[in-house]
Amino acid sequence: MEKKQTIIELTQLGKVFHTKDGSVSALENIDLQIYEGEIFGIIGMSGAGKSTLVRCINFLEKPTSGEVIFDGQKLSQLTEKELRAVRRSMGMIFQQFNLLMQRTAFQNICFPLEIAGMEKSAAKERAEELLEIVGLSDKRNVYPSQLSGGQKQRVAIARALATKPKVLLCDEATSALDPSTTQSILALIKDINRRLGITIIVITHEMSVIEEICQRVAIIDDSKIAEIGTVEEIFTRPKSAAGRKFFFPGGAKTRELTGDRCIRVVFDGGNAYEPVIANMILECKVPVNILFGDIKNIDDKSFGHLVLQIPDDERTKGRIVAYLQEKNLTVEEVIENV
């Protein structure tokens, strides 16, 4: 990540679907750069256009405007055959796994190698190696119907990695899995990124997935990119309304508090281990009311924020803010609740 080399660039990307009831714009003016070796998240509510976006990246959906530049090639200028070759360097996994039901785990992993025309014995060797990587060597000859969701996704990951792609696209890859399986799949994705250096693009509607594995994130809302930044940046200071919506899951409730004096205290690493709020209460001798809190561990550092209701007078507020700022915390007044 020191030298940021762009592997995928989207410029002014747009996609319009023509339906019987007129045209629907699924994506508008998407500008995005994805760097080699990073894990990039794309988050949005369902219907925001994120699935269309990921399908535009490998041209399963042809964008109606703009360009996708992968590894220096404009995809719109490639022939069908060239495009198929490019797709072999972009693996993809899906929410519903999409395994071939009539093939065993092993045969599923061989599938992309057959398509690529790899020699049988080499393909076999590669598939065994991949089963090892995803920890399913003992399920080699099992059909997908006998595998659990997590195991199916592991087979799908192995299959997607078979042709040694440069990029792995994950379309809601953990959305059909239970929380603990989600954790193990995310850990596997992270591990693959670290060990193989593959760039990973993660599409999700779950903030927790982004926090868990992504370095940078784009928030997509209503067919457009609302904001892009590092996960820390966006997590601590979401600038867009869409961004705040993801960090204030209780947004509807906090709205009632508008009018009272509230402040938002942002923890951006380290000092969340100190009992800062308790000390502040003792120090400033003010009662505060915690309205909202969300503190998490990201990459072994603590990030999060609290919304505090404080007494409605300027001097007390000044004291509190001064105390917190002294502790290197960011404090902002919450004027308009999201």
Partner: peptide, 24 residues
């Protein structure tokens, strides 16, 4: 979804007919 997965791996229409549609 399975057809889409095959396409994402660079399968040609002929590959899809012979290796996905008919066997599945």
């Amino acid at each position: 979804g399975v057809i889409e997965a095959a396409q994402s791996m660079g399968a040609s229409p002929l590959d899809i007919v012979y290796k996905v549609l008919l066997p599945e």
